[in-house]
Computed example of a mutant assay.
Amino acid sequence: MAPKVHGPLFSTATMRAFAVLQEKEVEFEAVPIDMRAGEHKKEPFLSLNPFGQVPAYEDGDLKLFESRAITAYVAYEYHGKGTELVYHDTKKMANVCVWLEVEAHHFDPIVSKLVFEQLIKPMFMNKEPDSAVVEENQKKLGDVLDVYEVRLSKSKYLGGDEFTLADLHHLPTMQYMMGTSTKAVFDARSHVSAWAKDILARPAWIKTLAMQKQA
């Protein structure tokens, strides 16, 4: 049976799981979850993720939650299929792990606030973004991307010269930022801008976005 990903098609965390499966060329089933109706806080979803957060992943009798754990499992489970995404050389993988941590602890907390202010509030809450919060977090993002700019001046991708999970994990939130004023923060840094354009144009990511259009 094909693996199943339970979660809304537009959720950044769910998109991360879709993207890794697309890169690995693994057929899977997307199981929509209606968060507005609170399906993620009820059974049977809670049996898959007791924290009531998306996504959840099923592969036979294996059940996983937390999108970054899901991407790591898929990358290693399907070694030799599709894009590798991880290294089996421990020193190379150590560099990837550093940037996986950077994305999770430095990039994502800032960009998630920008996604909320610039997209979720106006689209789903009928509220205007708080311009002070946007400005503050764009400045914080600029400081983080200054570090990225130095790194990307030395290698094509964050983990080295090949596309890995360290890059893939940025895709969902970055995609949403490209339709907001925050895009200018990326564009202001030449290496970051080139990297963003490169990874956002990957065929596997285009397929992930196509899932939303089909829905």
Rank of each mutant, 00 (worst) to 15 (best):
N137C: 07
H105Q: 09
V102I: 13
L200A: 04
L171P: 01
V147G: 03
M178I: 00
V102F: 04
S153N: 12
A104T: 05
V147P: 03
K121C: 08
K197T: 11
D161W: 12
V144K: 08
Q175K: 10
R189P: 03
V133D: 02
L119Q: 06
G142F: 09
Q138P: 01
M174H: 02
Y176S: 07
L100D: 01
E135L: 04
E162D: 15
D146E: 12
M93Y: 14
D167C: 09
H191M: 10
A196L: 03
P129E: 09
D167T: 09
E136P: 07
M178G: 01
V111C: 00
S153W: 11
K140W: 11
V185W: 05
V96K: 01
V150I: 15
N95S: 11
F124Y: 15
E136R: 14
E135W: 02
A184F: 14
E101Q: 12
L141A: 09
S155N: 15
K197G: 13
H105C: 09
K183C: 08
V185P: 05
W99T: 01
E162S: 14
H106T: 05
R151I: 07
I199G: 01
S131G: 06
Y157F: 15
D187Y: 02
F116A: 04
R151T: 14
A184M: 12
P122K: 13
K139S: 15
A194S: 15
L200M: 14
S193Q: 13
A104D: 02
T182K: 04
E103I: 00
M125H: 09
T173M: 12
Y157G: 07
K113E: 14
L141P: 02
N95L: 12
V96Q: 06
E128M: 11
G179Q: 09
E162G: 08
L141H: 06
M125E: 08
H191E: 14
H169M: 11
V150Q: 15
V192M: 05
I120S: 10
A104G: 11
Q175T: 14
L158K: 02
K154C: 11
T173D: 08
L141T: 03
L200G: 00
W99P: 00
D130W: 01
D143E: 15
K139Y: 08
K183N: 08
E128N: 13
A104V: 00
H105Y: 08
H105V: 03
L141E: 05
S131K: 14
Q118I: 04
E149Q: 14
L152F: 02
M174Y: 02
C97A: 11
G160C: 11
W195C: 04
S193L: 07
V150L: 14
F116H: 10
Q175A: 12
K154W: 15
L119N: 10
E149W: 12
M177C: 11
E149Y: 13
M125S: 07
V102M: 05
W99L: 01
E149H: 13
E149I: 09
K197W: 10
